[in-house]
């Protein structure tokens, strides 16, 4: 299998990239790390006469803290995220997800923007972005817009990106106090995996009575897109964290929120059961972290 022929562009500004995309419209594809796209091109799952790399646009490769928000450029790699001090300190569930994606070699190239635009239901970083309430920053010929990452996914490989738009990055509110978050995934082996299921949880504790003030739980690989587990969140809200509540939340996620399918990586029944276990376990850790603050 050979890569098909294409014209390759390396614009150095967002505007230049937007212009190129506009010029070639449907015949052009944007490339960040290329770890999914190049494989898809090779397998002829996608076609592109023109490939526009975003790698040379410096501002897209930065992690920047500005006041109470964190901006992550679309081309920031998984390795960069793993090593970033602010990610390590404030966004543990993103750190764990970026540590876990693919192999070392892939993590050095694969980007957060690419992971999101690829919109795999099993996407490694997606549940974590959802529970941190990340916003997707888009820029196109019509201007800029921001939407919650949670509503960005429309199906396997499908997103809310408009023709001509570029996902330029993410904006995340810096979590305040009394919170904890965690991410867990399950695969057949211990690394280089494609998830059978993955779960992220974010919990904020009310310091006055040590009950759960807010809980956000996101589930991967059990629906056409990563999804929120609202029933599990309801179970937790205003309750004191504990084994029984975590279990109940897990059961709610398992029976009420996920809609998995059978495929060669696992059956729907197993995925459901594992959503129960992983939800319970992520909540355990997230709550422990929250209460330790």
């Amino acid at each position: 299998m050979l890569l098909p022929k294409f014209e390759f562009y390396e614009p150095t500004s967002i505007q230049e990239a937007i212009d190129l995309k506009k010029k070639y419209r449907g015949k052009a594809k944007l490339m960040a790390g290329g770890t999914d796209l190049l494989v898809h091109l090779k397998k002829k799952l996608v076609t592109a006469d023109h490939l526009i790399s975003l790698a040379k646009i410096k501002e897209l490769s930065q992690v920047q803290q500005a006041g109470d928000t964190l901006k992550i450029g679309t081309c920031v790699t998984m390795s960069q995220l793993s090593k970033s001090a602010v990610i390590q300190e404030k966004f543990g569930a993103i750190k764990t997800a970026s540590d876990n994606l693919g192999t070392h070699l892939i993590r050095n190239r694969a980007t957060l923007g690419g992971n999101v635009c690829n919109a795999s239901p099993a996407g490694e970083a997606l549940p974590s972005l959802i529970v941190y309430q990340a916003q997707v920053r888009l820029q196109g010929p019509e201007g800029k817009r921001k939407i919650p990452v949670e509503s960005f996914f429309k199906g396997p490989g499908k997103t809310d990106i408009h023709e001509g738009e570029i996902l330029v990055g993410f904006q995340l509110p810096l979590p305040e106090k009394n919170y904890g978050a965690h991410y867990l995934q399950l695969g057949k082996r211990k690394s280089s995996e494609i998830n059978v299921v993955n779960v992220a949880a974010f919990v904020e504790i009310n310091p006055a009575d040590q009950t759960v003030k807010t809980a956000r739980i996101a589930l991967g690989s059990v629906a056409a897109t990563p999804i929120r587990s609202f029933h599990a969140e309801d179970v937790l809200t205003n309750k004191a964290p504990g084994e029984a509540v975590f279990y109940e939340a897990g059961e709610a996620a398992r029976h009420k929120d996920c809609q998995p399918i059978d495929d060669f990586r696992g059956t729907a029944a197993y995925r459901r059961a594992m959503i129960g276990v992983l939800t319970k376990r992520t909540l355990e850790t997230a709550c422990k972290l929250a209460m330790a603050q």
Partner: peptide
């Protein structure tokens, strides 16, 4: 997708 042992396993 054909899963041989990694160093982690």
């Amino acid at each position: 997708e054909y899963k041989i042992v990694t160093a982690m396993d």
